[in-house]
């Protein structure tokens, strides 16, 4: 679950493995916190998303001021520039979301849970989840389109 979430956010096997390792090492070092005991799966899922976001943003920042120390490792290219471009755009758009939005988005899109199931898992109302999902999709659409427009100019 940790690897799966981290991979969906970073798109890099290499980074997802590092994140999985960091999460478990931190868990071993911290011991069982109250938050973890209350909802272990939810805690790990959220931690994986937070770490993945942190890692993705750092990598992006690093890429902008890169002096060649760390190349982009493990981000697969699929040989089709259009597809690679769309993947990258989607990754960038996801990285702009709040951790909670990513959490709900992944539970819905990747894991296929219904709004009702997600609401139960996260202790929210079904309505709140549906609204958040709707807004998240709208924001993603907006950011992806904006990037497209900038590119087409």
């Amino acid at each position: 679950m940790v690897y799966r979430a981290a991979y969906s956010v970073t798109g890099s096997k290499h980074d997802a493995q590092d994140i999985q390792q960091d999460v478990f090492v931190m868990l071993i070092d911290q011991g069982r916190t109250l938050e973890f005991t209350k909802n272990p799966a939810g805690y790990l899922f959220r931690m994986a998303i937070n770490k993945a976001l942190e890692s993705f943003r750092k990598r992006k920042r690093r890429k902008e001021t890169d002096d060649g120390l760390e190349p982009l490792l493990g981000v697969p290219s699929h040989g089709n520039p259009h597809q690679d471009d769309m993947r990258e755009r989607l990754r960038l758009a996801i990285a702009k979301l709040e951790p909670e939005q990513i959490e709900i988005l992944l539970l819905s899109v990747d894991y296929g849970y219904t709004d009702f199931q997600i609401a139960k898992m996260l202790g929210k109302t079904r309505n709140a989840v549906a609204v958040m999902l709707h807004r998240t999709r709208a924001r993603l659409r907006e950011w992806i389109c904006r990037e497209k427009e900038v590119e087409n100019r």
Binding site: S8, A16, K148
Partner: peptide, 16 residues
């Protein structure tokens, strides 16, 4: 705006 976000997510969201 004809971008189908569900289609994009289905096709491009990295899945392990």
């Amino acid at each position: 705006d004809d971008t189908n976000i569900d289609e994009i997510l289905k096709q491009y969201l990295p899945r392990a």
